[in-house]
Every structure is written in C-alpha cells, then in structure tokens.
Amino acid sequence: MHTALVTGADRGLGFALTARLLSDGWRVIAGRYLEDWPELPALAERYGERLVIVPLDIGSDESVHIAAKLASAQTNSVDLVIHNAAVSTPLKDLDLRGGLDYGDMKRIYNINALGMLRVTEAFLGLTDAGSMKRQCVVSSEAGSVERCERRAWYGYCMSKAALNMGTMRLYEQLRPEGYTFRLFHPGWMKTYMSGVKSEEGELEADEVAEAAARYFVEPGEANGRLVMRDWSGKEWPW
C-alpha cells in the first residue's frame, strides 16, 4: 500500500485529494491545520487506520518537525507528498500608491513559499525510503511572471513565483536521487484560502482533485523537464 502526505488537508482541494487517495486504496497522512474543522475526523471514521491525522502548520518549523515525528511513528516511508497548504489575503488589492503591508507579505511568503521547503526537508527521511519519491506542488498561474497581468496582488504572486523557483531548484537537487516532481496550477477554484469558502470560481475542489490525483500518481517525468500544468493538462510558462 502506498502512503501519501497531504498538507492543508482540512478542506478544499487538500481534503478532496485526501478523500480521493483513500478511496483509491492509499494510506494518507493528512496535515491538519484547523482543530475544529469536522471533515477529516468524519473521513477517519470511514477509513480507520488508513487515515493518519497530524497537526501541521507549515508556517512553523516546530510544527513541521513534530508532524514528521508523528508520521515516523506510524510509517517507515512516504511515497508521495502533496504540498497543498497555502493562504491568500484580504489585503491583496493594496498597491504602491496606497501602501503595501510588508508584514502581511512576509506572512504569505512564510507559508506559500517557505512552507514547501520546511515540509520537504523534515520528511526527507521518510520520502528517501519511499518507492515513488514524488513531490507534488500546488502552485498557481499567479506565479507565472510571463503571464502576469495583475496590477496588485504583490504578496501572493511573489510567493508563488518563489515557490516555482524553489520547486525548480529542488528538482535540480533531488532528481538525481530518483525524485520526480509535479507542479500544478489548480485553476480558478472555489477555495477557502481567504478563510471562508469563496463562491467566485469556475471549479469545485472535487473536479480539480480528480485531475490532480491522476497527474500526481502517473509514472515518470513529463519530457524529462519540470513544467507547470493546470487541471486540464495545459502547460503554463514560467
């Protein structure tokens, strides 16, 4: 049985991917950020020991290391990691004329860009022992410099551009060790990233999770190079 780690598994795409992998027979270590959100515990009742819920705040070194220890107590290896947890901000429309909130920009970067690195490093012992060595990163078109037409959203777009760069550099470092990567833009989804579920969006999390799960578990590397693909399979430029 394969084992996956999913960050931000409480709700939205992370929860949908967790449910999908469980229904496909995987064991899932689900990183839980929201203590009182009910969906994961409900899923645990259905899947029993195949779902391991660990508290996980990817913005905290300590939390990530504790989560890795808890996971190590349950399994000797992790085959696939889905870096899904991310945040947005109600301050995204601030611009240079009105004044940017640099504290908020650092908060977003700490989670969206550095969170992936924390989790990757803390779980290396488990993923090194895994059979797939697959790192899947949920990024965004907002990280594509070439396609950027926004006039604000500085903190969010900068965090996603940095995430893409970080993924590229890890690809360079870990690929010779047998790791493979998936970089994914989920499309315009109805997300909880601002705290409550947004009804603005074209896609439900379940639809995206189906496409994402297929892309994440399929074997091999796409043409031997790292690319960012969206839910429909389209490649996005850097």
Partner: peptide
C-alpha cells in the same frame, strides 16, 4: 535556494509594477 527564490519574487514584483 533561498536567494534564488527571493530573486524570483522580485522579478514578479517588477512585472506587477510595470503593469501598474
């Protein structure tokens, strides 16, 4: 790693500034 990521973020900020 950290340096390169900071440069990617800056490159994005320049694009947004140019747009704005």
């Amino acid at each position: 790693l950290g340096y390169d990521m900071s440069l990617a973020a800056r490159r994005m900020s320049v694009q947004i500034m140019a747009n704005a």
